Lab assay of single mutants.
Amino acid sequence: IINNLKLIREKKKISQSELAALLEVSRQTINGIEKNKYNPSLQLALKIAYYLNTPLEDIFQW
């Protein structure tokens, strides 16, 4: 999986903590996703895309 979450999140000036709060997950979860240590569920990936107002395929590429 190619993961552009960190790049997109930083472009939008959103911290890991802010995104985690919006998604109701821990900051460690966001960190793990960004470091490719954790693959989000489809539901979480869709929520990330929604809150970042970015197409899912721009954030994650399988």
Rank of each mutant, 00 (worst) to 15 (best):
I1P: 09
I1C: 15
I1G: 10
I1D: 07
I2A: 11
N3L: 04
N4A: 06
N4M: 05
N4E: 05
L5G: 00
L5I: 08
L5Q: 01
L5C: 05
K6Y: 07
K6C: 06
K6V: 08
L7F: 13
L7G: 09
L7P: 08
L7N: 13
I8H: 08
R9K: 01
R9Y: 03
R9V: 03
E10R: 08
E10C: 08
K11M: 10
K12D: 02
K13H: 12
K13M: 10
K13D: 11
K13I: 05
I14G: 01
S15Y: 05
S15V: 05
S15R: 08
S15P: 05
S15L: 06
Q16N: 03
Q16F: 02
Q16C: 03
S17K: 12
E18C: 08
L19G: 01
A21Y: 08
A21F: 11
A21M: 09
L22E: 08
L22S: 10
L23D: 00
E24H: 15
E24C: 14
V25Q: 02
V25F: 02
V25Y: 02
S26L: 01
R27K: 15
R27N: 10
R27V: 15
R27I: 15
R27F: 08
Q28P: 07
T29K: 07
T29V: 15
T29R: 08
I30L: 13
I30E: 02
N31A: 12
G32R: 15
E34P: 01
E34Q: 01
E34L: 04
N36A: 08
N36C: 12
N36K: 09
N36F: 12
N36M: 12
K37L: 15
K37H: 14
K37E: 15
K37R: 13
Y38I: 15
Y38M: 10
Y38P: 02
N39Y: 14
N39K: 15
S41K: 07
S41L: 03
L42G: 05
Q43N: 11
Q43G: 11
Q43F: 09
Q43D: 14
Q43S: 13
L44C: 06
A45N: 01
A45E: 01
L46P: 00
L46W: 07
L46Q: 13
K47D: 06
K47R: 14
A49H: 02
A49G: 06
Y50P: 00
Y50Q: 10
Y50D: 08
Y50A: 09
Y51C: 10
Y51Q: 09
L52M: 06
N53P: 03
T54H: 06
T54I: 06
T54S: 08
T54P: 01
P55F: 04
P55V: 05
P55L: 04
L56C: 07
L56N: 03
L56F: 10
E57A: 11
E57L: 09
D58M: 10
I59H: 02
I59W: 02
Q61Y: 13
Q61G: 13
Q61L: 10
W62M: 14
